[in-house]
Design a binder for these strands. Sequence first.
RNA 1: GCAGGGGUGGCAGAGCCUGGCCAAAUGCGACGGGCUUAGGACCCGUUUCCUUUAGUGGAUGCAAGAGUUCAAAUCUCUUCCCCUGCACCA
Length: 947
Amino acid sequence: MIDYSSIEKKWQAEWEKARIFEPEPSDKKPFMVTAAFPYVNTALHIGHLRTYGTADALARYKRMRGYNVLYPMGFHATGTPILAFAKRIQKGDSELIRELKIFHIPDDEIKKMVTPEYIAEYFVKTVEKDMRTSGLSVDWRRKLVSIEPIFGKFIEWQFKILNEKGYLTKGKHPVGWCPNENNAVGMHDTQHDVEPEIEEETAIKFKVDGEDASFICSTYRPETLDGVTNIFVNEGSTYVLCRMDGENFYVSKSAANILSYQRGVEVSRELPGKELLSKKAINPFNNEVVPVFPGYFVKESLGTGVVMSVPAHAPFDYAAIERLKASGYNTGEIRYKRIIDVQIGRSLSDVSVGEAKPVHVDLPSLAYLEVLHTDVNAIDDMLEFATKLQYREESHWGKMLVKGYEGMSEPEAREKIKKQMVDSGKAIMIYIVQNAPVKCRCGYDVVVKIVDNQWFLNYGDPKWKEMVRQNFEQMRILPPKARNGFAAAIDWIDLRAVARSQGLGTRLPVDKSVIIESLSDSTIYPAFYTIISLIRNVDVEKLRPEFFDYVYLGKGGVDEVAKTTGIEYETIKRCRDSFAYWYQETSRHSGPDLIFNHLTMYMFNHTAIFDKAYWPKQIVVNGMVMSEGEKMSKSLGNIIPLVDGAERIGIDPLRIVETTSADLLSDSEYSESSVNGVKERLEYLKSVIDNIAGYESGEFKHIDYWLYSKINRKIERATAAMDALELRDYATDVLYNSIIELKRYFDRGGSNGTVLREYLQNVALMLQPVAPHISEELHHSLGNEGFAALEKWPIPDSSMISEKVESEEELVTASLDDIKRAWELVTKKSPDKRPSRVSLVVASDWKRRAHGELAKSKDVGKTIASLRADGVSPEAAAKYVGKIAKEMNRLREVSTTEEDEFKALGEAKGYLEKALGAEVAVEMESKSKSARAERAAPLKPSIEIIF
RNA sequence: GCAGGGGUGGCAGAGCCUGGCCAAAUGCGACGGGCUUAGGACCCGUUUCCUUUAGUGGAUGCAAGAGUUCAAAUCUCUUCCCCUGCACCA
């Protein structure tokens, strides 16, 4: 058994002692690998190995390919999560404590986690330890934490530049807001961690006839305005007349309160809903005067509490009006007006619609109730269903009938009408919490507030976008299929709020009252790794913008900067050199969840700040890790802390399973069985190496050449796979196929120590990227000195790759297979017959020529003629060529000769006899008298089973 | 709704870009056999249907439908369904 734990500890200590992962600029080609730094609210679990292990695999591979490789690491602590974390600990939150216990965090440590600073300190320590346990080839001298003052200086400089370039702007922005605590709330601040989903609604002003006031109706479908027949209010609710933006409005009392966070609202007086029923309203779209009805379904707390009624296109509206009529309410004459044309029920299958045919196609909402086998008295859930169906079909396939918008699709008309109404002052946009009620941790309902002094980064800036697109074209995205996602993200990203009033982090230089939001302060930090270890001893206050200007932008001169900042000349110069060196070639790694935020912001900020030469070169996105078919999560309790995994399973097997068991972008699957499979294979490799001394060298046999061919082909393929970071393909070749090949080699009597040693030496080295410890151990077991981690990546010897040798080996396998099949069929049908001997006949060389010629000429006649000219009998030539002509387009040249095949099968005779338990004879067709000999084809000898 | 990624055999999951060697790798499961006192492990075989007393031939088949082609899991179009993201949150 391999003792992973002690092997890992041993090599980690050796690497550390030799400081082999602490690179400095040199004349070698640089390669810098960075992975998204972890947020410090948890220890690592085995799933984290996916991203960090993939990045490490690339780092180690590139190192072996002769690059000077830098793989630095830092820690993210800015933002609100550890603030909330500290509060929860203060309150003794049992759920959180239970989660921490999964990671074996001792009680006395948990007790101390009442300040975010301590939490950060604790997890920085823990995660670094976890990463060291993982055997990552990280240069720990460059460690940084995003809440360090030194980091703050760097961020301040970054935002100073962004501001100077005009990318920092100020404006209005809707946010989730707690009216009680008076601050913005995000997901981390709500009960059950619910994200308040903010949605925009159009609120249409319906002037009250004869009054200086309007109803204001919120709606998702302003395009249906032309179909409004009346206004609905809840007659049992309290309404107010209020003043907003210099106009008077009727809204529900609770709506007035909610709206007051978005606009200035002054309540003039309260009134019961009933009082509104006597009023008339003017539709701003078509100036029709419409009445006000009581709507049983109107909720005062939703939107404005006043609803415009479009009965032809809203089942609720239609049902409410019909029920009013039925109850004897005087509605006056209602003229239902169809404004969207669509094939009703088209998305439903015939089965669910059954016999129901929409009769009232001029009144779509009724027609929708009809296809659903119901009517105006349906329960609310049914009406809700009909509403959704109608809305979906109309917006998907509907064509507008409204004058001026004829034939338009609904979404297009919606945007046009919305814009027209808002621009002409007939409507305003309001925001609602779409998934209301969302409760703040303090217990109050979250509302939407429009913050008007919000700072944004204007990622929508066309010139900026253009720069990013330009760089993106040059960039390498791995895997290539993630490329479309990035292109979409670059197009989509727009204004992004960059400041918050709370949380840990750096204050915005242009407005010290706010803190830079935590994703925005971690976009160009990889550049900071290149210099941080050089300025650790510099007084933080000396890190003035002039310093960074020189280091990152080459502005000014070293003397000048040394004078203004007081930093030593040599330090400044080394920083500039270090940045300019390492940033030539970079690779950024993360999970796919960061494509639409961090990774895109990474591209934008780099292009905004740095010179072209230092723009991003490569981004790698990898999938996540699933555990036994389920997503790993603390609440499911299926998290395996990294320390446990290292101890119970071993880091190398874990790294192999997680980084190589799926496509780069697909989620990989951790399971006991997959880990065991990997371990068995590693054990097998080790056992062969442990016994290597027992194999003597000698003259090479066919199977030795075969193994040479295999190893060199393997190197070729593994190298190509690593270049594309296709770790799954790489591992299939290097690990899984190696086992199969070795077993076959021994099966076929292979026993040459020289060949085996070379094979294993290469396999051991090629395991280095994903299984660095085992690789190191095997490398040394083979008697090598020096670190595998620093060895040259194997180079294939293409002269040893032989199509012919491999074909011959396949010939043996395929023949054995065919013999078994035929054998079985014969003995099944005649159980009393006992075959005693098998005779194989390999095909004459003229048949090989036939293949080659036919493949080239595609001409049956010509091929036959050419064979006859060579002295082949006309009958045999015609018969054979006729047979192979059927698969003319699949024919290939054959690399073996009759002689080759004869020899190969001859050498394998012993093997075949053992496998079959019968005598085997091999003949050449040109010399055979067997009746079945003519059936022989290249690489497919004829078989005769003799009884 | 918008954007991105998908839909393959009992399951998981390759193949699709670059059409033919694909009844479709590999792993798991199931079944049969070997080994064993027995179980596990291991080894061999089977795992769409029909056909074949010699290594075979055929049908159906990769979400559904249509198209392009001598040839489609693979290319094009349409439809249906699933997953992820949609922001101030790391």
